[in-house]
């Protein structure tokens, strides 16, 4: 079943991909919306009800005028959580979506039952002269590619093989991420202080070869969330959901209540 719906969340149009049945899992994407054909989606959907929205402006989605900050995204998803028919959901965020998920969990939405962060960004860990997050806009594409993937030759998309439509979506993804997160670059200076408010069980998963945000950053992130557990996923870079979907979903399944 592939179904992309268009929801209205407090007047904001939101594209949502749904897959599977069972315990609900709200999946917030990173630099690109979840590909409807991605193996991770079917693996998750085997025993969960996946709800995967597209952040406004990403992919081919629309973005309302003046909707241009992480503050807007966080409130949009707080609204969505209240609008969904589920009492409680597992909130899972990848990369940039991990930042959003951490913000939502720190806001203590009563609808969040569990939190899963995967190679998340969103906080400042290092000193003022040590960037935590690779600047994917100001760094050469070859270096970004090298640091993004465990096996770049296998997983980095070949632009020449992509459709025009996919390339336009890719450009819109970059524009949108840039709009939301150029400065401070991919983090909220205040968020680290409030991660201690997160009271739900939390799992932090990290690609062992991630060169965009390293496992050391992931451990520091995890250490600030009370009771959170950190697990590495071997043979994966910044996108375990693409390079190791099986291992990722196994960890998710083990973490979810039976």
């Amino acid at each position: 079943m592939v179904a992309t719906e268009r929801l209205d969340v407090g007047g904001i149009p939101l594209e949502v991909l749904r897959r599977g049945a069972g315990r609900p899992l709200l999946l917030l994407h990173g630099e690109a919306p979840i590909d409807p054909g991605a193996p991770v989606l079917d693996l998750l959907a085997a025993d969960t009800r996946v709800i995967a929205p597209t952040h406004p402006g990403f992919g081919h989605s629309t973005r309302p005028d003046g909707f241009d900050t992480v503050y807007d995204l966080v409130h949009l998803y707080l609204d969505l959580l209240e609008q969904l028919p589920h009492e409680r959901v597992t909130l899972m965020g990848l990369s940039f979506g991990g930042w959003l998920a951490a913000e939502i969990a720190a806001a203590r939405s009563s609808r969040v039952e569990r939190l899963i962060l995967v190679d998340a960004v969103g906080i400042k860990v290092g000193d003022r002269e040590t960037p935590d997050i690779l600047d994917v806009f100001n760094t050469s594409p070859a270096e970004v590619r090298r640091r993004r993937w465990h096996e770049p030759a296998k997983w980095a998309p070949d632009p020449d093989a992509l459709s025009n439509e996919a390339l336009i979506a890719h450009a819109r993804n970059r524009e949108s991420l840039c709009l939301y997160a150029w400065h401070p670059y991919l983090y909220n200076p205040q968020l680290a202080r409030w991660l201690g408010r997160i009271t739900v069980p939390t799992l932090v998963l990290w690609g062992a070869s991630d060169g965009i945000v390293t496992p050391a950053y992931g451990r520091a992130y995890c250490a600030r969330i009370p009771g959170a557990r950190f697990e590495l996923i071997e043979a994966a870079g910044h996108h375990p959901e693409i390079e190791q979907p099986g291992a990722l979903v196994e960890r998710v399944r083990a973490f979810m209540p039976s």
């Binding site: 632009p159 992509l162 025009n164």
Partner: peptide, 12 residues
């Protein structure tokens, strides 16, 4: 503009 991306990212 993003609409011109097909010419930006491709080598051919």
């Amino acid at each position: 503009p993003a609409a011109l991306a097909p010419a930006l990212y491709t080598t051919k």
